[in-house]
Amino acid sequence: MEKTYRTRRGDLVPAVEGITLDIAENEFVTLVGPSGCGKSTLLKLVAGLTPVSGGTVRVRDTVVREPFPDVGIVFQHPVLLPWRTVLDNVLFAAEMLGLDPDDHRKRALELLELSGLAGFETRLPRELSGGMQQRVAICRALLPDPTLLLMDEPFGALDAMTREELGFELLRIWDARRKTILFVTHSIPEAILLADKVVVMTSRPGRVARVITIDLPRPRTVELEFDAKFKAYSDEVRGLIFASRRARADAR
């Protein structure tokens, strides 16, 4: 598939081009690549938030032409509603989907408990740390139990320690209730540690450089980072990203 944006001045910007990507059900796929290579665009295309300029996006054999309810989205910033309590922010998903929030209260509380937010249900977002707010945003995305979870640098605004913690938490939640996850990150170790598959993209226009299957045992642990295999994957990804950068520099 491909996507061309038209800027305000009328110029055409090819954001992604010739992307072919197959993702199996319940797979954890991470997406890395230089800034501006179209990772966010790709997620928006999959979510049906922006139309493709060519090709098709299919989710479970249905062609995606508009947003569909079976998807959860997490952004780099939590974007919670500041006037709603933590619990009501999670229930926001049900309300907007036109479901009865009362039917989802139990699940919302379970999700909050699972993310270590028990006891914070009645707090306002501003009383929470950045990491806790992002946990709430993840609970909100998980509330309708979507089969597809799209995450755009969800831990990008957090410090390294919180980031690692949340990564493992996400793996735990995913383990308990499998779903397909498409996860954009700028951190190569994070991409490898979480994923079944790492998709490396190159920029302008964004293309898929390589899809690397990560053959590391699950459950993943911090120790894996010292594994020789981990290092090899890490070098491979880094090599691909640098190669694309060098190619661009040469082209100038």
């Binding site: 928006k44 979510a47 049906g48 938030l49 508009e66 947003p67 569909f68 309810p69 998807v71 989205i73 952004f75 910033h77 974007v79 509603l81 998903a93 907007m96 989907l97 036109g98």
Partner: peptide, 14 residues
Amino acid sequence: TPPELLELSRSYRA
């Protein structure tokens, strides 16, 4: 309004 919130609302088809 943060564009993310509008995208989120759209994805919920609200």
